[in-house]
Design a protein around this nucleic acid. Structure first.
Lengths: 148, 148
DNA sequence: CTACGACTTCAAGTCGACTTGAGGTCAAGC
DNA sequence: GCTTGACCTCAAGTCGACTTGAAGTCGTAG
């Protein structure tokens, strides 16, 4: 199993060495040895980084991502918890879908004031209420994750 | 048109007054008058806040959101630009969909090592390449903004 | 063998998005 | 008329996710 040094990982993933060190520090990835001082990573790290970047672009914090994928890239979590994460993502997909529709609408709707356009209001309402709940939930999830 | 004072807006939206002041400072919303010192907002602000929270949960910065919806909540931008934002969101929906599928898969797949499971690798590959591009784009925007 | 460039550590800095704190103002209820 | 509580301003603090800088260490190419 041929190892990649941090420079190669950085080149292949597009993530700066400094960020890779930071991820390692945070326990998201782990280097397997050194050549001189240089960190050597197993090739799976590239896949793990992809997962990390997916999680990030989904708006999860590094802590949450670590929670999803565990220390070595794979979840040691009960299925139910993972499915709950997936549900959270599903909800987010819903919200994004509404946002996209809203944008397309405001781009094309010729009405003078969108605020009074019923189509617009309906679109905005789709994702509405959960947003408030969410901020609070996030905090509690983090707390829960810290006390296993 | 009955006005809402900042406390009511906060209660109805779940957003703290301090954050509302911050949004006003940032030009995302605007209060229309004062009663004593208290800011008074027009009722549309609630809709605007919904849009803002949608945008936030989609991972956009306040600046980007301001860019989408303009100073007073509605876009003054050319259609093409708005559609590009919508496309960006569409891409993100794609990524999230892949992430959700990946999570469901790791929750249920009984394989010993996911790293070698072809289903898993395929899922991860779905969203892959764009992430890198995105980070660079963001950075270059930032750089450009610093040198006007 | 030496110079180079890419890495190393560690501390400190940055950026966005707020929150918090100190000190002050107001309008409504008692 | 005075207190109370929710607001006000402005400066400073916080948190996450990195980046940057200084000072040092390697291994390879010339």
């Amino acid at each position: 199993m041929k190892l990649l040094d941090i420079g190669e990982v950085s080149a292949k993933s597009g993530i700066k060495p400094s960020a890779l060190r930071y991820y390692e520090e945070a326990g998201l990835i782990s280097s397997i040895s050194r050549r001189g001082l240089r960190r050597q990573f197993p090739p799976e790290v590239l896949l793990q980084l992809k997962l990390i970047s997916m999680g990030k672009s989904a708006g999860f914090s590094l802590d949450e991502i670590a929670g999803m994928f565990g220390r070595n890239g794979m979840p040691d979590l009960p299925r139910a918890v993972i499915h709950r994460k997936a549900d959270e993502i599903a909800r987010q997909i819903h919200e994004l879908t509404a946002l996209r529709a809203t944008l397309r609408h405001v781009a094309d709707c010729p009405a003078p004031s969108h605020m009074e356009c019923p189509t617009f209001r309906r679109l905005v309402d789709v994702a509405g209420k959960r947003a408030i709940t969410r901020a609070k939930k996030k905090a509690s999830i983090v707390r829960a994750a810290r006390q296993p």
